[in-house]
Design a protein around this nucleic acid. Structure first.
Lengths: 151, 151
DNA sequence: GTGCATGCAAACGCTTTGCAACATG
DNA sequence: CATGTTGCAAAGCGTTTGCATGCAC
């Protein structure tokens, strides 16, 4: 495809990349794009979105930037069934996700009851240094509304 | 290394494959091998194990058999960080796993409190048809105890 | 005998890496 | 200027598929 010109969209990265790295046009674009999305996206999806938006950026860079964000705790990453990794901007605290299996919209869930439950189960079996990962998948109110679904 | 404490080349076809499929030497071997392992294993690991045990079986067949088992609900499968899929024989009921991050030994966890919690969270946000997946990872008693180390 | 099962090799999709050109601080 | 960064191409990885041969039933 003729990915010619660089009609670089005015990337107004609110706050810098925040990672201890150099601030480049590409990184700001990736971070900004990720901020605009409320659902989980793959590196490839985000790359397509950027290119479609006129931002010239390499797929490799998107991969590297998303990884850096995840490593820095600035983005959450989940692995889906087929092994593809999805990213999403999020708070740095420990939490889980309630993801819409239709549109991908995600709600962060924090619950001390769950944390306590996990610790209890772990202790009951003598396991130590236990971490846990949980994911809830369902249909969000919008996607579940009968009026907007096929009849 | 010939770690063949109870080298079971003798495939005891105790119970058949149980899937509505043909009973072949390869399938029985895969199922039998999976039964002998208490931890999660990848298709490749299981294949190596079989070959090392003297069983001639193709990697493709192992992949296909494990998938069939998982589809039939006779095996549980989890995807780890790098996208590799691990399998383990298990009961058909809904449950979760407490996996030792060192030796892979796994305990099945069933808890109605957790199920109730998940439903509560889902309803609170208006999500419907919510399913959940949870995994606990830690060190099992044996791996956590310095004196009784065993590898 | 008939059709599913097998397994080799090649294809796949996502991700990572080598390396030369480049931009940021 | 000196690094850290970029991005193309190619390699890597686990997994899947095409297809001819083979075996269970």
């Amino acid at each position: 495809m003729p990915a010619s010109s660089r009609a670089a969209s005015q990337v107004d990265a609110g706050e810098a990349v925040a990672i201890g790295q150099r601030s480049t046009r590409q990184r700001r674009a990736v971070v900004s794009a990720l901020d605009d999305i409320e659902a989980f996206v793959s590196a490839q999806q985000l790359h397509q979105r950027l290119v479609a938006d006129g931002t010239s950026v390499g797929l490799t860079t998107v991969y590297r930037t998303l990884q850096a964000l995840a490593d820095a705790g600035e983005a959450d990453s989940i692995v889906q069934e087929d092994g593809e990794v999805l990213y999403r901007r999020c708070s740095g605290d420990h939490h889980h996700h309630l993801v819409c299996r239709d549109c991908g919209v995600t709600i962060e869930v924090q619950d001390s009851d769950l944390e306590a439950w996990a610790r209890r189960i772990a202790r009951r079996h003598g396991y130590r240094d236990v971490t846990h990962s949980l994911e809830l998948r369902g249909l969000c109110p919008e996607c579940a509304t009968p009026s907007r679904r096929r009849s």
